[in-house]
């Protein structure tokens, strides 16, 4: 479908969006910043406490780190999702959608504006995440300077590892000595690269499709579905970690069947990344078509 594109109009529409969303954005950014700070401080305290008993919990600190990695990425994604959808709520709200649809702007221009809103939301929250992460990491380091912060369980979630490498990483955790900063950067990059972006992109696309399907409270319903999904994922992770930890409480005694299970899980995570990208592309293709078909309520 042929659609005109004028940067001046895109700029005006973005300004309109900013005018509508700036207060909500600033308020939620503040709340999220506080939440992040609390969560990350708890993470470091937890990690510090666990390291007081290294003999009893040989595998546990690494596991906590892995869980935290997932927790961070999912937390980030869920929060960014919730807030950025507020920015584009005009598109789904029955009253604002009537006004917005009538504003001069081609479907392509409005699509680009939606994407720009999401990108802006994503960058803003990633920045908050980064700043708070390093501040609280400093606090954690100051609280427990005597601990072996070189211990690395964080890189284990990197789907780049091969099937053969992953079980061996679990068995020889102590060999993975990296500088603290480096491992935390790996955590952050992996979180964002492998989990957040595809989930975020596909979830936002999913949310907008919910807008088309539900006549009321589409935002709440789509967030509800996402929260349910995240909850289910968390339960699955808890079961997975429990399965992994119990046989390992007294030493290095992984069973080959467990190795295979873990390898399978990591493989699933790896494909989850590709699936997220594909889903995202699919959702946005639908979204572009839906903008043209969107109607006031």
């Amino acid at each position: 479908m042929k659609s005109s594109f004028n940067m001046k109009r895109v700029g005006a529409l973005l300004r309109y969006d900013w005018m509508l969303g700036k207060n909500t954005f600033a308020l939620t950014l503040g709340i999220i910043a506080i939440l992040y700070a609390v969560i990350i401080i708890l993470f470091f305290i937890f990690k510090g406490i666990l390291n007081y008993h290294p003999d009893s919990f040989t595998a546990f600190p690494g596991t906590v780190a892995v869980a935290s990695n997932t927790y961070f990425s999912y937390g980030l994604y869920a929060i960014v999702f919730a807030v950025t959808t507020l920015l584009t709520h005009k598109f789904c709200n029955p009253k604002t959608s009537t006004t917005y649809l009538a504003l001069p702007g081609s479907n392509l221009e409005k699509f680009v504006v939606l994407l720009a809103d999401y990108l802006f939301g994503f960058l803003a929250y990633t920045l908050v995440y980064l700043v708070l992460f390093y501040i609280t990491m400093g606090i954690g380091y100051a609280l427990y300077p005597h601990l072996d912060w070189m211990q690395n369980g964080l890189a284990l979630m990197d789907p780049g590892y091969t099937l053969q490498e992953i079980p061996s990483l679990y068995r020889h955790e102590d060999d993975l000595a990296h500088p603290l900063m480096q491992q935390e950067v790996v955590l952050l990059i992996d979180s964002v690269r492998y989990y957040t972006i595809p989930n975020y992109i596909s979830s936002l696309g999913f949310y907008l499709i919910c807008c088309m399907c539900f006549r009321t409270n589409s935002q709440i319903k789509s967030i509800g579905i996402n929260v349910f999904w995240t909850f289910a994922y968390t339960v699955a992770l808890i079961i997975m970690f429990a399965y992994m930890i119990v046989p390992d409480l007294h030493g290095d005694n992984y069973h080959p069947a467990l190795d295979n299970t873990m390898a399978t899980i990591f493989q699933v995570i790896r494909y989850n990344f590709y699936a997220g990208v594909l889903l995202g592309i699919g959702f946005y293709a639908i979204l572009y078509r839906q903008i043209a078909r969107k109607q006031a309520k």
Partner: peptide
């Protein structure tokens, strides 16, 4: 919904969103 058309019309709905 071409911009050329939308520039020519203005609708004030009964329950317009109050921003």
């Amino acid at each position: 919904r071409e911009p050329g058309f939308q520039e020519q019309i203005r609708l004030v709905p009964e329950n317009e969103a109050i921003l």
